[in-house]
């Protein structure tokens, strides 16, 4: 008997897809295991897209609740992670749009401030190594620069460069053609590079 059909099969040994099949059949052991497997990736994804840790926790929770609520809509045979990231990307997109509507939005001026503060310290030749504070400032600057990239490019960027999805998986998760994924990723990276240019220059300075 195949493991996905065998009710006695250990949950831990099941694939994501088999687990999701069990969730759809109301096997109470399956859903917590799926959440355990993906909670870190989902939290990281939404956190990097929004650059807002607190909101990321709530949104990650919402993603899994939706997986459960829509469990019977999961198409058997399709890759679970792609379906999950589709839900996560849609919720993140909605949150970005809600923020834009409310003007509760990260401003480019704020980014410039962060870059201004971070760059000189990173380039300081008297520093033999990056202090913890510098590293945090750098990460903060990069995180903010990501959120300054427009939403449609940002999602592709985060799915690719932070979550490591393939172009094909991104195309499926976002419902766009592969060629569009390629151009969006390239565009997003170029935008990010321009935004981080002051940091790159200082870093490159001997």
């Amino acid at each position: 008997m195949a493991p996905d059909r065998d009710p006695a099969a250990p949950i831990l040994s099941l694939s994501d897809e088999d687990l999701m099949g069990r969730v759809a059949e109301d096997d109470e052991r399956a859903f917590p295991e799926l959440v355990r497997r993906y909670q870190g990736r989902v939290t990281n994804l939404v956190s990097r897209v929004l650059n807002d840790r607190e909101c990321a926790d709530d949104l990650a929770q919402e993603v899994f609740v939706r997986v459960f609520v829509h469990r019977r809509n999961y198409r058997r045979g399709s890759k679970f992670s792609t379906w999950l990231f589709t839900i996560a990307a849609n919720l993140a997109k909605n949150e970005i749009r809600r923020r834009v509507r409310r003007r509760n939005w990260f401003s480019l001026d704020a980014l410039q401030e962060v870059l201004k503060d971070s760059a000189p310290q990173l380039a300081d030749p008297t520093e033999g190594r990056e202090s913890k504070m510098e590293r945090e400032q750098l990460r903060d600057a990069v995180g903010r620069a990501i959120t300054a990239v427009p939403e449609k490019y940002r999602l592709s960027l985060v799915l690719r460069d932070i979550e490591g999805l393939s172009y094909e998986e991104i195309a499926q998760a976002l419902g766009i053609p592969g060629g569009t994924v390629r151009s969006r990723i390239n565009r997003a990276r170029s935008m990010l590079k321009r935004k981080l240019q002051p940091l790159l220059r200082k870093e490159g300075t001997p």
Binding site: Q39, G40, N44, A56, L200
Partner: peptide
């Protein structure tokens, strides 16, 4: 270098 910076971001834990 930009992509290395993005890749160096720590992963957020749940």
């Amino acid at each position: 270098r930009t992509l290395e910076l993005v890749g160096s971001l720590p992963r957020e834990e749940a």
